[in-house]
């Protein structure tokens, strides 16, 4: 558990953390930001956040990569909010409205890699396709529209409801039920 050692101020663990999670943080940032220098800033900010917030990491609630991913995602999206003032999309609400990244919420949940794949398979086929295009191939909504021919509203709705469905499936997994049980 690298993050637990980081939480104790272990500098060597932080170096290992950079080696282990650096590529993930970089990849997440690249999904949202094109500018190279901004990418570097986001990666550095994410690891600064990680150093400061590692004490809040709870292995019972999130995997290490999910925790790091959440920090990277927030940093990247925060930047993209400012940069992507595209007419079709509204900048997201204020960052300070976000729940604290303490991973202490009782509503949080642990998502293991195998659970992610299993839960995805429970989604309707058409929703699965959109999820793979968005999360695996990194396509934006307009790119998914172009690829699938689906209306933008349908893409958005499927992604949103799919995310909620996945969350509900994880919760059932956490409570020991089969993901497909209602």
């Amino acid at each position: 558990m690298i993050l637990l050692r980081v939480a104790q101020g272990d500098e060597r663990a932080m170096e290992q953390c950079i080696t282990k999670f650096g590529p993930l943080v970089w990849s997440i940032a690249k999904r949202h930001v094109q500018d190279h220098s901004a990418l570097e800033d986001i990666v550095q900010e994410t690891f600064t956040d990680l150093w400061k917030s590692a004490k809040r990491y709870n292995p019972a609630i999130a995997t290490e990569s999910t925790f790091v991913g959440l920090l990277a995602r927030r940093r990247a999206i925060d930047f993209a909010r400012k940069e992507n003032r595209r007419p079709q999309f509204e900048p997201l609400p204020d960052a300070d409205s976000l729940p604290h990244a303490s991973i202490e919420s009782s509503a949080a949940l642990r998502c293991e890699s195998k659970d992610v794949r299993a839960a995805l398979k429970e989604l309707p086929k058409e929703t699965q396709q959109i999820f793979f295009l968005h999360f695996d191939e990194g396509m934006t909504h307009p790119e998914i529209v172009e690829k699938t021919g689906l209306p933008l509203g349908t893409v958005k709705t499927r992604l949103r409801r799919g995310l909620i469905d996945l969350r509900n499936k994880f919760r059932r997994l956490d409570s020991g039920q089969s993901p497909s049980n209602p």
């Binding site: 590529p23 970089w26 794949r117 999820f131």
Partner: peptide, 23 residues
Amino acid sequence: DLSLELVAAALDAEFLANEDTVL
């Protein structure tokens, strides 16, 4: 709460962790 954000982060981690990305 964090639950939806965690799911999105878990998806990112799942799909991107195994990419051949080098810093």
